[in-house]
Design a protein around this nucleic acid. Structure first.
Lengths: 345, 345
DNA sequence: GTGAAAGCGCTAACAC
DNA sequence: GTGTTAGCGCTTTCAC
């Protein structure tokens, strides 16, 4: 049985309040008293009970993280960044993972988080199964602050990457390399980044006076396997395709493999651009041109914004205005997108 | 301000205890009363306060996860598995991420977890900076149950993969393919799996009557970049090397790239075996032979063991005997390890 | 079936 | 500087 504040008080012959003062580093404690108390704490192996503290302070120093698809690169990096920043502020992260395989019991998951009295929520799950309908002004009024990561929502502070610009950058680059028929290997349709990147593809082509041709769009799951399947399908349907922008690097890798097996040469007679800039991308064959997002930094920003909102709320003010924190992706040019002769070797 | 049990009691004209009974699905409540209470709960938007409940029940239904290097494949998969299983049992995961970049304040992190009164801890951090010295019988007596993932510890239930056998499988396979000088591209020295896999390399060679030559071992960080650097160094030092076993798939990818740039042909005149079987491995050029571990399943097993221990402890019995739950890795043969002519194409 | 009282471990608001 | 009292929201015991 762990020692309590009371045990420490008894042992050191002072009141509980005094012990509490010592534990919380408050001033107005005589140094002799403090010494005695600290000794007793040491002897008893006392450890403050954060649960009791949370109950009376009405703050748990806990942030709930609603996440989805942790197996993909971006969400997992985001989580890492969020965790680091949260630790800096003394917050712990409570994980709530939505499972792609299971029917999504949004209410349950959210209720659990709220029951546990998290001080705020980072909602980094895409709007699968219409989960975002949950976010309504009335509901928000009865909830701790929320920061969304993904599609901007007017009612909530949102931290996001401009996936549209990412798609634009990728396809404009392919156009600049003189590729003629540029396809899009789409990821899972339920992911908003997917449609945003598709829009980028679409508008870049329009902007160059080309007509976006939907027969050059094939979708697959966001894995190498998915990319390989989609590429094979695309090559079968449109053998004249000479470049592809892919939903992510994993799909791009699969696409390059499938294309190679079909006799095409990525970085020679087939332009390929991925998305994510995973650490491996520079070592693919050929090295992959891709779009880099600052995923971990987004996690950091999300926590910062959330902590700010929490603090604001605690200080009794009303709810802060929802912000939009958006980061611009950047293009990383390697060899996979360059036509023959332009490459480094 | 959220409604409390008391508010519900007042509104429905019953005692708090009765409301508590309804909320906890206890029997001995008249169905009429129950209806009235449920109505009041609905109207007030009442949500039980898990913090208050934890305080009195002395159970938080929370598991602390001490983890490290979430950017690598195995730890992240482990976490996913753990999260899924924990949710099944009604537990939430509290994340404590040790940061490779920062000086590791083990005590702080652990103290925080204990302060928050987690019901158990999953310790999935390798013994970096001697953190495992923390685990002593005396200390364990004052702590909630712990399950370790990694190097087995006699005092604690451990869930692990047999990294030694993994190394053995990999190198025995390379030997069977008639490769003559087999190197090891080592990962970070502080990771126990690294030394275990090295032992596998070592013993496999001895078992075949070869002498393990340390000049064939080069180490790097566990990334593609690290693998490329290590491979270059190895080729410089021992141009006669004709096969490598790599700490993980990322390093193997980097190694294959570096070897290719140096004029070697993986899967033809250079045998390469990785470790992890990441989803992309089958799509590398050439497809990578590798060792597969059931990482997510290990996370599941860890939580199962922990929940069992927690329940045992709650029921007043003494601490259960430490178990060793070990899974056997399996070899996945693709093309990178096959000499010319044996491959599929 | 239902309720009253006590208390989980801590802090807030005062007194002294 | 230090102590006293009350109470956070819930469960537990035991009475009715």
């Amino acid at each position: 049985v762990p020692a309590t504040l009371n045990d420490v008080a008894r042992r050191s012959g002072v009141s509980t309040k005094t012990v509490s003062r010592v534990v919380n580093h408050e001033r107005h404690v005589h140094s002799d008293t403090r010494e005695r108390v600290l000794l007793a704490i040491e002897e008893l192996g006392y450890r403050p009970n954060a649960v009791a503290r949370s109950l009376v302070r009405k703050r748990s120093l806990t942030i709930g993280v609603l996440t989805y698809g942790l197996e993909r690169y971006a969400p997992s990096r985001f989580l890492i960044g969020a965790q680091h920043e949260a630790a800096k502020h003394g917050y712990a992260l409570l994980l709530a993972l939505l499972q792609p395989e299971l029917p999504i019991r949004m209410d349950e998951v959210l209720e659990d988080l709220l029951s546990r009295r998290v001080d705020g929520i980072i909602w980094q799950a895409p709007d699968v199964a219409n989960t975002h309908r949950w976010i309504t002004p009335q509901r928000l009024a009865h909830m701790p602050p929320i920061v969304l990561s993904g599609l901007p929502n007017p009612h909530v502070t949102t931290v996001t990457v401009d996936n549209y610009v990412g798609g634009l950058l990728a396809v404009e680059h392919l156009l600049a390399q003189q590729w003629q028929r540029i396809g899009y290997l789409a990821g899972p349709a339920e992911l908003p980044p997917n449609s945003e990147r598709w829009r980028g593809w679409h508008d870049a082509l329009c902007g160059a006076g080309r007509e976006p041709d939907e027969s050059l769009v094939v979708s697959g799951v966001g894995t190498a396997q998915g990319g390989a399947g989609a590429m094979s399908a695309l090559l079968g349907r449109r053998p004249d395709v000479d470049a592809v922008f892919c939903f992510n690097d994993a799909m791009a890798l699969g696409a390059m493999r499938a294309a190679t097996l079909a006799g095409r040469r990525p970085g020679v007679d087939l332009g390929v651009v991925g998305y994510d800039d995973v650490a491996e991308a520079a070592f693919y064959t050929p090295p992959l041109t891709t779009v880099r997002q600052r995923n971990a930094e987004m996690g950091v920003e999300a926590v910062r914004a959330l902590v700010r909102a929490i603090e604001l709320q605690q200080s009794g003010d009303e709810r802060p205005v929802p912000l939009l924190i958006q980061s611009r992706p950047e293009l990383v040019v390697r060899e996979s997108s360059l036509p023959h002769g332009v490459g480094h070797r």
